[in-house]
Design a protein around this nucleic acid. Structure first.
Length: 541
RNA sequence: CGGAGUGUGGCUCAGUCUGGUAGAGCACCGCGUUCGGGACGCGGGGGUCGCAGGUUCAAAUCCUGCCACUCCGACCA
């Protein structure tokens, strides 16, 4: 029987990439992890069918829909608390930055110059029937739509900081930024995106480094406990550093197609920006010295990471900690007198759920009274990934029972798994259930991450054999590939560039050097010299 | 910016080769029958076929140019 929603007709795929039939799954496209070509299709389907976002008429920018934005708000709330707990205060800087500000730090400009949106006029005018910038309203100095705020915040720092007593300065802002990327993908890389950027200034190099690592750890903990997304925290190699940074650290997550997603970065900027922008203070010995600054950020890209970490062929699965609604009650209404009792029972259930606390916060529950077919509503919530979906029918109500399904464990084979508890037992079980779902999603992803980092590769040949040529769409290239952890001698300069090129030929990059390092190292697979640390290599977003 | 592909109602697509004046399934609206659950029947609304120009009695279909999107590459905290 044709299901109640559009499916991709299987007969039309002769020319397209091979796809597995997705019988009786709620999503229209399967993620089929052993074929990388289907993964982007699946990703787009889930973004659309889970009501997360859609492409906007503005090139490369997205419209974040209420369900997707609700997830972002959860991310904001939970991360903001952590940022404040570590001593930072929020503030806000302008969207526009004078062009000249970027000229001050050479590496920084070079890194961002190719992707800047520039405001050159302040007025429109009709010319020959066409609306365009008024030539007479040209700005004396063009304004840059911020791609990041180091320059304008550094400028403020230079005025705010005079004495060692002013330090440290620990601030953060939640903002939108614009980077004119060539190719965009919803949530993962859009020309405008939302993020949080922390900026700090310190008296010493040690304090700067300590701050950088502290925030890296905040990101790791946040990602793993709130997003249920396991990551590897580590230091980026020299060639992957933030433009103008002494050191860049990242957390890297493994998506279900094996590719790495850089989920957050923390930069030790040393005195680069301080020197470029004259951020100085008098120390207690009366000397005028430069500050050590840091910056760190995570963005709406995290939502893409959550989708690609937890999504399945029935749609999104949201960790309860970031689900805008953790429990959705779908009343099975039939236009009959008993509907009233069902709705009343549902309303009572909401009332009983609201005071409950799960994962340290009040439970977020919804009674979906929308005038829509019950079955339709159920599948929509499955696709959106609500952690617990309650189906409430007249018989449940009469018996005082609650039947529900867990989104993290939706099916028993092809069948949807549903369980029933008395109202009392259900209410008692909810906090534990939500915590369990949160943990389950993490465990599942953690297992996948750990199982797909190879540590047995000891030569370039073995590395190449594992990842394949990457150039063609041959089976080897399409197959799922995780990451490889190898020893290396941390080459620099031309030698590092050669390594980069070698890897690039196979679409590989060094993701980072994990924080947890052994005490002895094998031989560097690139230089043949003794290794000094281990790095992760993989394909990435 | 280079290579390949695609643009037809909200979604997935057929129709384009062989011009004749727009279709299907799902979604949507109405009525009825169903219903512990992704139901069915009947009726209905919605598209200037990506945009602009050209050829023609006639263009979704042929020609030219442009634009957008997808994938690959380049690029990318």
């Amino acid at each position: 029987m044709q299901a109640g929603f559009a499916r991709r007709p299987l007969g039309s795929m002769e020319d397209g990439p091979p796809r597995r039939p997705v019988m009786q799954r709620a999503l229209s496209v399967s993620r089929t992890t052993d074929n990388r070509l289907t993964f982007p299709d699946w990703y787009q389907a889930i973004v659309r069918e889970a009501d997360m976002a859609e492409v906007s008429p503005t090139r490369g920018a997205m419209i974040i829909k209420p369900w997707g934005y609700g997830v972002w708000e959860r991310i904001q709330q939970t991360l903001d608390r952590r940022i404040k707990e570590t001593g930072h205060d929020n503030c806000y800087f302008p969207l526009f930055i004078p062009l000249s500000f970027f000229a001050k730090e050479a590496e920084h400009v070079e890194g961002f110059a190719k992707e800047m949106a520039v405001v050159t006029h302040h007025r429109l005018k009709m010319v020959d029937g066409k609306l365009g910038p008024d030539p007479e309203a040209r700005l004396e100095e063009p304004l840059i739509v911020r791609p990041t705020s180091e320059t304008i915040i550094g400028d403020a720092f230079s005025r705010w900081i005079k004495s060692h007593r002013d330090l440290p300065v620990l601030i953060n802002q939640w903002a939108n930024v614009v980077r004119w990327e060539m190719r965009t993908r919803l949530f993962l890389r859009t020309s405008e995106f939302l993020w949080q950027e922390g900026h700090t200034a310190h008296a010493t190099a040690d304090e700067g480094r300590e701050e950088t690592l502290k925030m890296l750890e905040v990101y790791r903990e946040f990602s793993e406990t709130v997003l249920a997304m396991p990551v590897v925290a580590g230091e980026k190699p020299e060639n992957e550093r933030f433009p103008g940074a002494d050191k860049t650290y990242s957390i890297e997550a493994m998506m279900q197609d094996g590719k790495a997603l850089q989920a957050g970065t923390s930069h030790d900027l040393g005195t680069h920006f301080a020197k470029a922008q004259n951020i100085r203070f008098q120390n207690d010995a009366g000397e005028l010295v430069y500050c050590h600054t840091t910056s760190w950020g995570v963005s709406t890209r995290l939502i893409g990471g959550v989708i690609m970490t937890h999504g399945d062929d029935d749609g999104l699965r949201l960790p309860p900690a970031i689900a805008p609604r953790q429990i959705v009650i779908v009343p099975m209404l039939r236009g009959k007198p008993e509907d009233e009792a069902v709705l009343a029972f549902g309303a009572g259930l909401i009332k009983a759920l609201n005071p409950l606390v799960a994962l340290g916060e009040p439970v977020r529950a919804l009674l979906d009274t929308k005038d829509q077919k019950s079955s339709e509503k159920r599948w929509n919530w499955v696709r959106r990934g609500a952690p617990l979906i309650v189906e409430l029918g007249p018989r449940d109500v009469a018996a005082g029972m609650v039947s529900f399904m867990r989104r993290d464990d939706l099916r028993d084979g092809e069948k949807v798994r549903s369980q029933a508890l008395s109202q009392e037992d259900f209410l008692a079980a909810v906090p534990g259930l939500l915590a369990e779902i949160q943990q389950n999603l993490f465990n599942e992803a953690k297992q996948r991450l750990d199982a797909n980092i190879r540590r047995d590769i000891t030569s370039l040949d073995e590395l190449n054999a594992y990842f394949g040529a990457a150039a063609e769409n041959d089976e080897d290239t399409l197959a799922f590939k995780g990451w490889v952890r190898v020893a290396w001698s941390r080459p620099t300069g031309a030698e590092l560039e050669a390594v980069e090129q070698t890897l690039k030929a196979r679409k590989l990059t060094i993701r980072n050097a994990p924080m947890d390092q052994p005490t002895r190292f094998g031989t560097c697979i690139f230089t043949g010299r003794p290794g000094v640390e281990e790095v992760l290599i993989g394909r990435s977003y």
